[in-house]
């Protein structure tokens, strides 16, 4: 562009802003001012308790006693799995948490995606079915946990009852009394609760895909499966990354369902890190030790967040240009 100003109407002189003006109206500062209240709330109610929790894990605080700094002693008690004197229950809870999170998340994703695709079709009573799908998500966790508690009850289980009357089994299944059965039952209950969130979110994602893309792909010769493989799935990956991050975090830190159904039993086989931490800190009163267990969850959660962070970083095709 040329610097020529010939023929232009001259602009009037402008008063230069003072530093005070800048603080008030500069876009960057303005952004800071608008952000400040939210930041203050986050620091007060999120960062502070988190810091306090981590600090507690370095003390020998008990309920009713302030405790003093003992360094990493609480963590030394937990130990590492190959140490002879490591805390076996703690490492069992780590194992349980990983199994619980991985199995439940994978199944929830598969079932959720399947349901979302199903609900995206032109079904009769579509609206009604969509709301029904949401029910497990709407029911309070404790309520559904109690329902599952009954469903899995050793004497009155409806599943055992039905199977017995169908002549498939002779004895009631010991759902919550056997370690592996208990784990499977809890994972099932968690899946039941978690699927709607994933299904509805993915459904929302599916509905943002323009139908003309499917038409174009169909004309290009794509079969139904190829439509899904080359159009639907790639376009859904950003939302899958978000929803699965949330799902993994919520599952990993699950507490209510376990506590209402098994309280970590039988023989600690369903203790997750969250329930064990609560048991040690609040019920047993060893705040420092409980805090150490809770803090030990942080690396796992950070890892999950990092995975999704790098997976989430907007893909190349999402960048640049205005929206079409």
């Amino acid at each position: 562009m040329s610097d020529s100003v010939a023929g232009r109407v001259p602009a009037p002189a402008v008063r230069h802003p003072t530093w005070w003006d800048r603080l008030r109206i500069n876009r960057n500062w303005l952004g800071f001012w608008f952000m400040a209240p939210a930041a203050a709330i986050l620091i007060l109610f999120l960062a502070f308790p988190l810091g306090k929790g981590v600090w507690l894990s370095f003390t020998d605080a008990k309920i009713g006693r302030a405790g003093s700094f003992i360094g990493l002693e609480n963590y030394e008690w937990l130990g590492l799995p190959w140490w002879r004197d490591s805390d076996g229950v703690f490492w069992l809870s780590v194992f349980n948490t990983l199994v619980y999170t991985i199995v439940a998340s994978i199944v929830k994703f598969a079932v959720g995606l399947y349901l979302a695709i199903l609900l995206n079709q032109n079904l009769p009573f579509k609206a009604a079915i969509r709301s029904i799908v949401l029910i497990p998500f709407v029911v309070p966790t404790v309520l559904s946990a109690i329902a599952f508690w009954w469903i899995f009850d050793s004497q009155f289980s409806i599943i055992s009852w039905s199977l017995r009357h169908l002549g498939i089994i002779d004895y009631n299944i010991n759902f919550l009394g056997d370690p592996n059965n208990a784990r499977a039952s809890l994972i099932f209950a968690n899946i039941w609760r978690g699927v709607p969130f994933i299904a509805i979110t993915l459904l929302a994602g599916l509905q943002t895909v323009s139908p003309s893309l499917y038409e174009a792909a169909t004309l290009d010769g794509a079969s139904k499966w190829q439509n899904f493989r080359f159009v639907t799935f790639p376009l859904l990956t950003p939302i899958i990354a978000v929803v699965m991050t949330f799902s993994v975090l919520f599952t990993f830190t699950d507490f209510q369902l376990i506590w209402a159904m098994t309280r970590g039993g039988p023989v600690n086989s369903t203790h997750l890190m969250a329930t064990l931490s609560y048991q040690r800190a609040i019920l047993a009163g060893n705040l420092g030790e409980g805090a150490a267990i809770a803090t030990a969850m942080v690396p796992f959660l950070l890892f999950a967040i990092m995975v999704s962070w790098f997976g989430l970083q907007s893909r190349k095709w999402q960048q640049g240009g205005e929206d079409s």
Binding site: S212, E215, A216, L235, S324
Partner: peptide, 14 residues
């Protein structure tokens, strides 16, 4: 046949 759509229907991820 090949069709050109009003909104182009380009695959955004390709």
């Amino acid at each position: 046949i090949a069709m050109v759509f009003q909104n182009y229907a380009l695959y955004p991820h390709m």
